[in-house]
Amino acid sequence: MTALFFLVALVLLISAVGVVASRNAIHSALFLVGNLMSVAVMFAMLNAHFLAVVQVIVYAGAIMVLVLFVLMLLNIKLENQPALGKLVIGLAGLGGLAFLWMMVPLLQRSFAAIPQSAVDVQGSVREVGKLLYTQYVFPFEAASLLIMAAVVGAVMLAKRRYRA
């Protein structure tokens, strides 16, 4: 189990670096698909079976297909401006490292204090569904309104405007 974790973690990190580092936007998108799939595997390893499937359906199956579709439709391949200077990239890397350094004490102290729960939660479809339709029914309905608004907004934004 631990070996599997490290293997998936490796794939996850390499693909995340690929998203950030590749010059070609389509390669970035494909790396992100790999990344999302390995996150789905992580979910399955954490017993969140429902979320693993939803991750594949929503992220890999809908969002990333949409992104790829737009990339192909606009047919932009390489960034047409000169690459950023080494200085800027170095600074960004330093900023990232500083951010990580900030997280380290958080990881060490805060979560080590919480004991691992004895209950092994099973995120099966039945359990998650039950919770979603009882305790969280109001946010669930609100989410449907949000999606409705997003659909209308997307149509309004992407529609060709006819100038009067």
């Binding site: 494909l30 079976h49 499937v53 890999a60 297909v65 192909m72």
Partner: peptide, 25 residues
Amino acid sequence: TIDAGVLFLLAMGSIAVYGVALAGW
């Protein structure tokens, strides 16, 4: 035998798009 059952079919169906899109590109 997986817990999500039929939902797994939907997940796989949604991945099938990549092969086609990649082939076209």
